[in-house]
Design a protein around this nucleic acid. Structure first.
Lengths: 134, 134
DNA sequence: GTTAGGGCTTCCAGTCACTGGAAGGTCAAT
DNA sequence: ATTGACCTTCCAGTGACTGGAAGCCCTAAC
């Protein structure tokens, strides 16, 4: 099948699929006219990539997962370890964002938000405030 | 003062400061030897940028905040609106990450994580599992 | 038969916010 | 005079695409 069909089936943009070929994540064959020709297996790989990327795995992690996917003798522990590490990473990001949110909320609450120029948010960014963490 | 000093005072890498000059966020004068010469005001701006970036504002948002910072007639409402929008953005990211975490945890829990090849995580990525969302 | 359209190809450039490195000038101290 | 730290510019790379130009291919309608 052509790239457009593979794109629809995998929910990946055409451009992204070409990019994945460029970096060696898939290797579709070519038809006589030079068009990429995707097999069912290729589409499987694309769907796999689409899901794994959606779960926040980087391209390189996807490469690892793909080879585990295709290794009939893989240990499930390897996959689980990768997943656990990713969970920790997500956790770290969540708590970073939460503390960021707290700071922003403190600032927004302190700001009267009218047409007067006086603004605690700007003051804080300028390092003039009691809310200052520096 | 030289760029190294400005870097220490603002907690921004030297490279970043040069980059900020390139994109017009600061305009230090030059000494006779061609070295950048940073004033106290320049350092203020750099500190401001360091904080705002740390709070997740994009470069373009920082540009806006900087002009509000330097506009003595600004309305604090403008600043507050920007901050509120940023809070919403952070909130969105947090809930995305949380649902991502739930999926990853479900997968990790379902996986026995030993040396057998059978692995629900891989099965899900391959679209074979009951946990499938597609 | 030819023309219009859509899909396909490659290649180059841009995104965001830096970061690294090379090649070379400047300065203070030894 | 020479080291070594610091400064300069310029070019290239990061991650994961995305946009656009120029041009080939295929089908269908007129």
């Amino acid at each position: 099948m052509n790239i457009g069909t593979a794109s629809e089936l995998s929910h990946l943009p055409v451009k992204t699929i070409r990019y994945y070929e460029e970096i060696g994540l898939i290797e579709p064959t070519r038809s006589g006219n030079g068009y990429r020709d995707f097999s069912e297996v290729d589409v499987q790989r694309l769907k796999f990539l689409q899901r794994a990327r959606g779960l926040g795995f980087s391209i390189e992690e996807c490469r690892d997962l793909l080879s585990l996917y295709e290794d009939r003798n893989r240990a499930s522990a390897d996959v689980k370890a990768l997943t656990r590490a990713k969970i920790q990473e997500v956790d770290r990001k969540i708590s970073e964002l939460k503390s960021l949110k707290r700071v922003l909320e403190t600032l927004a609450e302190a700001c009267h938000g009218d047409d007067r120029p006086d603004c605690p948010i700007i003051d804080d960014l300028a390092g003039k405030s009691d809310l200052d963490q520096d």
